[in-house]
């Protein structure tokens, strides 16, 4: 029999201790006001800091822009590649693997070496959307690839065409709805990853949320703890979204 014995429970309890302790300690620490006093001081200070909202707002905008860039550039290209140019598949696979092979810090080194201008591109924080596109690319590529494989694209397109639908109608009414969960899943994952991204923003000197947390942490550990708790909860909310939207729904059409 395959039973969860004493050893199994011991492993789970140890794991629970390892994972819960830092969270509880960090939460407690964020309420510390010096000496024996505990309260909401650090949260109050943070809520009155305009820089927090500025940096968080910038990170939200960057996340949304990155998701948009990813969906607009990747989804149509993948649909058309599958329909008309399946021979390009290895090229796409290679592109989707590159961000794994080139670590973020190496890519940012390459970008700074190659692009020293123009100012309208590298001078605005939205320059970060370029590396963030590659941050989300491997995940989004996998998810959409699985989504496209689960429907019989060729047959669906032929069926649509024989019924008199235009290519635009087929993509809008047949292909995109069946990719909805894959697109939502990768969108939420990209949102979560970009919102907390530190490497690119820190090296390229833009004041995003993660860079702000790091700045705060250099001089005020309790406020940094409060922000860490907040980001844990935010990550959790985003991941719950991924699980609910990505796991709950099956493709509406097709299937083999």
């Amino acid at each position: 029999m395959n039973r969860l014995g004493l050893g199994g429970w011991a492993i789970l309890v140890l794991a629970a201790i390892f994972f819960i302790t830092p969270l509880v300690m960090t939460a407690t620490f964020s309420f510390w006001e010096g000496g024996d006093r505990y309260g909401f001081d650090s949260y109050r200070i943070l809520l009155h800091s305009p820089k927090l909202f500025e940096s968080a707002w910038l990170s939200i905008q960057l996340s949304l822009a990155s998701v948009l860039a990813l969906l607009v550039l990747l989804v149509p290209a993948m649909i058309f590649m599958n329909l008309y140019a399946p021979r390009l598949r290895p090229v796409f696979e290679f592109m989707a693997t590159l961000p794994f092979v080139v670590p973020a810090i190496a890519l940012v080194a390459g970008l700074s070496a190659l692009f020293t201008g123009p100012e309208w591109l590298i001078g605005t924080p939205f320059y970060l959307v370029v590396p963030y596109f590659f941050l989300g690319l491997p995940y989004a590529y996998r998810a959409i690839d699985v989504g496209l494989k689960s429907i019989d694209l060729d047959t669906l397109t032929e069926a649509g065409q024989s019924l008199g639908a235009s290519l635009g109608q087929i993509i809008r009414l047949v292909v995109l709805p069946s990719l909805r969960s894959a697109m939502l899943g990768s969108a939420l994952l990209t949102l979560a990853v970009v919102f907390g991204e530190f490497t690119f923003a820190n090296v390229l000197l833009f004041h995003t949320y993660a860079v702000y947390i790091n700045e705060i942490g250099q001089h005020d550990p309790t406020e940094a703890a409060a922000l860490s708790v907040a980001s844990f909860l935010l990550t959790w909310a985003a991941m719950l979204g991924v699980l609910v939207l990505g796991g709950g729904r099956r493709p509406a059409v097709g299937g083999r």
Binding site: A192, A210, N214, G217, A224, A225, S228
Partner: peptide
């Protein structure tokens, strides 16, 4: 899913606080 994505600076500060 949450903890695997809870990396970077906030994670470091959690452990410093602990």
């Amino acid at each position: 899913a949450v903890a695997a994505n809870f990396a970077g600076v906030p994670l470091a500060f959690s452990f410093i606080a602990t």
